[in-house]
Simulated assay, not measured.
Amino acid sequence: MDTGLRPDRRPAIAICAWDPGFTAWDPVEDLSGDPWNPVGARTLPVPGSPAADVLAAELSALLSRGECSALLLVGRTVHAGAFRLQMRAENRRLDGADRLDHTGPGVVRATAPAAEIVRDLTAAGLDALAASDAEEDAGSYILYRILNDLPDGAASPAIGLIRAPSDAPNTKVQSAVKTAASVIARHLAPLPRPNAA
């Protein structure tokens, strides 16, 4: 039976504030209950969790199953002043005492278009920089886990982590996340058309 509804071919960007206590990013803008979407894509809000290992596995599974084409992690930075786009993550356990993966690379690089995101954040009136240092928290741990779990040979999805300074008001955090997600969306291709039955 043909319902007349066209399938949504917009690629999905999973957006996750890994810390449940970080409430500055709210994907729902109004009373409709629908999450905000950038032009050309749709967002897939993923709630944070205090169990970083479980959340990392969940986000990796979303990517591997093709339920999203990109991922943006959102959280706080320990540094003052600017929004920071974290460009890499180190192979460290959550407690920082040892390597997480004894056979994995020491450092992995985020795949989101960092320079373009920083440029657009600056154009939106937000102080921003691309940071090479990895902060020792659950965000860096999750970023490493996801990037390290990507299969070899496949085109890498855009995966990034944006950090807000602790004094940034919610409106600026919302603007920064939307700007970063909009940049990522510009690089995503529409989903393929379903095969006719």
Rank of each mutant, 00 (worst) to 15 (best):
1 M>G: 14
1 M>E: 14
2 D>S: 09
2 D>Y: 11
5 L>Y: 07
7 P>R: 11
7 P>M: 12
9 R>T: 01
9 R>H: 13
10 R>A: 08
12 A>N: 02
13 I>V: 11
14 A>I: 09
14 A>W: 13
15 I>D: 01
17 A>F: 08
17 A>G: 14
20 P>C: 09
25 W>L: 04
25 W>Q: 00
26 D>Q: 14
30 D>Q: 08
32 S>H: 13
33 G>S: 06
34 D>W: 14
37 N>H: 15
39 V>D: 06
40 G>P: 00
41 A>R: 02
44 L>M: 15
45 P>F: 10
46 V>T: 07
46 V>F: 10
48 G>K: 06
50 P>T: 03
52 A>W: 09
53 D>T: 12
55 L>H: 06
56 A>K: 05
57 A>C: 03
58 E>R: 14
58 E>Y: 08
63 L>W: 09
65 R>T: 13
66 G>K: 11
67 E>W: 15
69 S>T: 04
71 L>M: 10
71 L>P: 03
71 L>G: 01
72 L>P: 00
76 R>Y: 13
77 T>I: 09
78 V>C: 05
79 H>I: 00
81 G>S: 04
82 A>H: 13
83 F>P: 00
84 R>W: 12
87 M>W: 01
88 R>G: 11
93 R>A: 10
94 L>N: 01
94 L>G: 00
95 D>R: 06
96 G>N: 04
96 G>K: 03
96 G>L: 02
96 G>T: 04
97 A>F: 04
98 D>Y: 09
99 R>G: 00
100 L>E: 10
108 V>R: 08
110 A>Y: 03
114 A>K: 01
116 E>H: 12
116 E>A: 14
117 I>M: 07
118 V>H: 07
118 V>P: 00
119 R>L: 13
122 T>W: 08
124 A>C: 10
124 A>R: 08
125 G>C: 06
128 A>R: 07
130 A>C: 07
132 S>F: 15
134 A>I: 05
134 A>W: 07
135 E>K: 04
137 D>H: 12
138 A>H: 12
138 A>K: 06
139 G>M: 08
141 Y>K: 00
141 Y>I: 10
142 I>C: 06
146 I>M: 03
147 L>R: 07
147 L>Q: 07
147 L>E: 06
149 D>F: 09
151 P>S: 05
152 D>A: 15
155 A>H: 05
159 I>V: 14
160 G>E: 10
161 L>I: 00
161 L>Q: 04
161 L>N: 05
162 I>W: 09
163 R>M: 12
164 A>F: 13
165 P>C: 08
166 S>D: 13
169 P>H: 05
169 P>E: 13
172 K>H: 12
174 Q>A: 12
177 V>H: 03
177 V>R: 09
178 K>H: 13
181 A>C: 09
181 A>F: 07
181 A>D: 03
185 A>G: 02
187 H>K: 14
187 H>P: 02
188 L>I: 06
188 L>N: 00
191 L>S: 05
193 R>F: 10
197 A>F: 11
